[in-house]
Nucleic acid binder design. Structure first.
Lengths: 182, 182
DNA sequence: GCTTCGAACTTTACTATTGAAGTCTTCAGA
DNA sequence: TCTGAAGACTTCAATAGTAAAGTTCGAAGC
């Protein structure tokens, strides 16, 4: 039997202990919260990727579908708006829309009222993909919080919102690139 | 004055309301938790990027520094181990190490005891970069949780750990790619 | 009514990551 | 010892992202 199959990812406890060893004035409580947040998010994204992969789309495409659905009927947004919402450059958005239009998830057409603008619209197929992804996600998310009572979920959500508010107040943001959509 | 400066990112409340409108059997409480988690993580990564940028490194490079520091003295790991820990392919790791060795953050040498292996070792400069990044991060993180009392932080961390444990139990993971390190 | 400015998107060049194929080393069996 | 298989990285071709330059259209002055 293999003693250690190779140094895999250290546990959160090990990781925090290592940071404390290397950096004295670290608040272990703060670090535990932050590290758990980050690792949890990573695990969740891996799970979402599995979901979307079974539908033949990528997480990146799912994000675009989500943004369009959230915008509400008639599910239309310009590439620039989409880019802002997803935290991408306009150039990246252009390419992503290329691919998605190619796959029939959205249509792209010029806005005849103002021909500088472009309108990206969700197709029926795109909406159905979103719905299937959403179904899988909601089952997964419900399972995720299974060990928290309803009261705990409420307290958890409330604290998350408080921290989120704090970061949005203190970080002007300036249209941040990076990372995944909610 | 501009009525709306352009549809920016919708607030979490708006977003959740939109999901409920489009997808009836969605638990708003669950969705609030999940969306807040995801958005918070995004904001945090934007902030970390600002920190690392001022040090002249990227978040990607910082992740490698963190993994090496967490491994403890003498701060050595193989490219394969690093790739596992960061959730990257070995190929990506090869390139990342190229760049970092070029920048003097790590050294790369063949393991003379087993010449198939390669040893990546943190340099003094790399360790200092890590330390500076860590200082900035710890200030930011302390500020992030400012609105939570010590009791709340403990409860928050405990719930995060419970959810994390849940996802790690139910998702076999199989060495997930994707996303950022803790 | 030109002309210039700015906005919205696209194009281009470059960088980072992936998956698959390739290389080199070690180890176990014939 | 030779040979074959497996492991650890690297190389290669293709994909997706960024930053900056380029296009095109609309609007505001002169």
């Amino acid at each position: 039997m293999p003693e250690t199959p190779g140094p895999a990812e250290p546990s959160l406890e090990e990781q925090i202990a290592a940071y404390q060893r290397e950096f004295q004035d670290l608040d272990p409580q703060v670090e535990q919260v932050v590290s758990a947040l980050s690792r949890l998010n990573r695990r969740m994204n891996v799970a979402y990727s599995r979901h979307t992969a079974t539908l033949g789309i990528s997480n990146a495409e799912w994000e675009v579908l989500k943004a369009l659905v959230v915008s509400g009927a008639p599910y239309r947004l310009g590439p620039g708006d989409l880019a802002k919402r997803l935290g991408l450059t306009p150039a990246a958005m252009t390419h992503r829309i290329d691919r998605m239009a190619n796959d029939g998830l959205v249509t792209r057409e010029r806005d005849e009222a103002n021909r500088v603008r472009v309108i990206v619209e969700l197709t029926v197929e795109g909406r159905e993909k979103w719905l299937e992804a959403m179904r899988m996600a909601s089952v997964f998310e419900e399972d995720l919080l299974q060990d928290l009572s309803s009261e705990e979920r409420a307290a958890f959500g409330e604290m998350l919102m408080r921290v989120l508010r704090r970061v949005e107040e203190t970080q002007p943001d300036a249209g941040g690139r990076l990372s995944d959509l909610d």
